[in-house]
Each structure stands twice: as structure tokens, then as C-alpha cells.
């Protein structure tokens, strides 16, 4: 019987970071266009946009590198 091949953990890490980063980035864009009534400290530097983008690209790179790998 053939042993099934497993996706590496890095594939799942990449996927979850990419999905979450994308959601956070989009929510940051939404808050840029529709500023909330109560602002957090340093809201003017829009952390959700750039942090969400960093997560998206970091996760996307891990996902892309491991999408065809098995262990």
C-alpha cells in the first residue's frame, strides 16, 4: 500500500498568514476610507494596512514555495 504524502507544515502556515493578512489589509483600507469614530493611538499611521500587507506577502511567499511539496 502506498503511504499517503503529507503537505509540509510551512504550507499551512503560509496559507493562514496569507488569508489573515489579506483580511487585515482590506479592513485597514476600509478604515482609511471610512475612519472610525473612536481612534486608537497611532491610528494615523494605519498599522492594519502595512502590517496586513507584510503578513500577506510573507504568508504568500511560504505558500507559493511549498504548494507542490510533500513530506
Amino acid at each position: 500500500m502506498l503511504t499517503p504524502k503529507m503537505k509540509p507544515i510551512w504550507f499551512f502556515v503560509g496559507l493562514i498568514l496569507m488569508v489573515m493578512g489579506g483580511v487585515i489589509f482590506l479592513s485597514g483600507i476600509y478604515q482609511l476610507l471610512n475612519p472610525p469614530a473612536v481612534k486608537t493611538v497611532l491610528a494615523e499611521i494605519h498599522p492594519a494596512i502595512w502590517w496586513g500587507a507584510i503578513m500577506f506577502f510573507f504568508g504568500g511567499f511560504m505558500y507559493w514555495k511549498t504548494r507542490n511539496q510533500t513530506v
Partner: peptide
Amino acid sequence: IARYYPSGLVGLGVT
């Protein structure tokens, strides 16, 4: 977290 994180990032911090 409550001081710095806007909506979306709060969810990430809690997660």
C-alpha cells in the same frame, strides 16, 4: 493591544 490595535488587528492579537 486595546491602545494600539484597530479593528482587524485586535482579532489578530486575540487570536
